[in-house]
Amino acid sequence: MLQSFFEWMQGLPFSAWMLEETWASPIIQCAHLVALVGFAGAVLVVDMRLLGRGLIKTPLNQLARELDRWMIWSFVALFVTGAPQVLSTALKQYYSPFFWWKMQIIVIGLLFNFTIRRRVALAEEGTLGHWPKVVGFLSIGIWTSVSVYARLIGLLS
């Protein structure tokens, strides 16, 4: 069933257009990479603060609140620029284990971010012991894995 869904995506006129239009893929890939930089910065500034590094003179919840919207909007940009790439190479993605690992970790990352990470980052500082460090470390690990698998889809699939 999933395979037929990917075959359907691959067969869409938009997918064909993406593959035929010389500049479509490069432009979308460049935009995806720029969005990735924005997302990485927004995540890292807060994660480093959770680890007790970086902007330690600024309250953690203030940083987390301010960078939350940057993280969300750059993720939206990543999705908007990532979806056409999946559509145009749907079967390549379907048969790549890195694609599935990436998707699974993105889901874990989003759930983790909007539940545990957000709660810890917005909590009163000094009340959660070592948990902020654990959460910061996990968050960096999750999003680093996503970018590693994303890169490997193109290189090893």
């Binding site: 930089v37 990485a40 910065g41 500034v45 003179k57 600024t58 940083l63 970018s147």
Partner: peptide, 29 residues
């Protein structure tokens, strides 16, 4: 792969420094 991940660390942090200078974010820092 390491090139891309290290780019995220470098360019991600520099982008927020630049945006602070421009006045787009982190105004209280």
């Amino acid at each position: 792969t390491i090139h891309v991940v290290s780019m995220c660390l470098f360019a991600g942090l520099i982008a927020f420094w630049d945006m602070r200078l421009v006045g787009l974010t982190l105004k209280k820092v």
